[in-house]
Simulated scan of single mutants.
Amino acid sequence: MKVLTVAGTRPNIIQEMLINRLFKQRGITEVLFHSGQHYDYEMSRKFFEEFGLPDPDYHLSVSSGLPCRQIAEIVTGTEKIILKEKPTVTLVHGDVNSTLAVALASAKLQVPVAHIEAGLRTPFFYNPEEINRKLTDHLSELLFPHIREAYDALMKENFSPENVFLVGDVVKDTLLWVLRRYHITPTLGDYCLATVHRYENVESLERMTEIVDAFLESGERIIFPVHPLTE
């Protein structure tokens, strides 16, 4: 078996770490490629190094851009890789643009798609991730929801139970691995951890001002690692 896996963003890389190790243990060939969607070092290369992941076999380097243009570039690049590698199945993670692009290219070339973190749903139809995850689910032959709510959502949309597997959260698995690896004992802290990176927030000075004002008014000690997009 040969699996073609895309890891285009930081969450994808985190999700991929343990899966890559399991593939090696079971003698499954994995072709790993990076779409370049997250091109900042701190959000991409650093995670490959810290998690001991192999260098990607392919790197598309599409970088940032308008979403349709970015998706089109990844589809075109993925098509070339699939035609060369002839994978048995394509593995995609999450709900980013890379996820949808690789699923679309695979389906067009009649390569089965396996979707990790399938089935998440929100009531916001035009949310970019909502569009990506819905379309990816419907392009996939194997769906791996990580929580019961996601599994139930797929059942409500009439996906075949034979193709849906409730497997748990690979991000949580990675977190537990890190805690064991570095002998970290979680304790209740006296602070809040905040992250702000959604496009509709960081591209609006008014919204960012409201968010920062809310931090200040909360009276809490807040640790705020700033996302590159937020900078």
Rank of each mutant, 00 (worst) to 15 (best):
V75W: 05
I131L: 15
M155N: 05
V167S: 08
V178Y: 09
R221S: 15
R181Y: 13
E203K: 14
D173I: 03
P11A: 09
L60F: 00
Q25L: 06
T122K: 07
V164K: 08
I116R: 08
D169P: 04
I74S: 01
G36V: 04
G94R: 00
F47V: 06
V92N: 00
R207Y: 12
L142R: 07
V75H: 00
S218F: 01
L66Y: 07
S98P: 09
I131Y: 13
I71G: 02
H115G: 04
V202F: 10
L179W: 13
G36C: 07
V202Q: 10
L205H: 09
P145W: 05
L120A: 11
V178A: 10
I147L: 05
R10Q: 06
E149D: 12
T195Y: 07
I116E: 07
P145V: 03
L154H: 01
P186G: 11
T136D: 04
H93I: 10
T9K: 03
Q15I: 08
T78E: 11
F33V: 04
T76Q: 01
E141N: 05
S204V: 03
V96K: 02
R221A: 08
R21Q: 13
A194G: 05
D57I: 00
A105W: 00
E206W: 09
S35N: 01
D40H: 07
A153H: 08
A214L: 03
V196A: 06
P67H: 15
V102Y: 15
I13S: 01
E162L: 11
S98A: 15
I131F: 05
P54F: 04
K86L: 13
T195R: 00
V164E: 02
R121E: 14
R221T: 15
T76N: 04
T29I: 11
L83T: 07
F215N: 01
K156S: 15
T185N: 09
R133M: 06
K84W: 11
D137I: 02
P87K: 01
Y126F: 10
H93A: 07
L205Y: 07
R221W: 12
T209V: 03
E129R: 15
R181G: 08
H146W: 04
T174Y: 09
F47K: 04
V202Y: 04
G119P: 13
S35K: 00
M155F: 02
W177E: 12
S204T: 14
P186R: 02
V6Q: 05
P87G: 03
N127Q: 14
L66C: 10
I223W: 15
Y41V: 10
V89A: 06
R148E: 14
S35C: 01
N132Q: 11
F33S: 00
E203V: 07
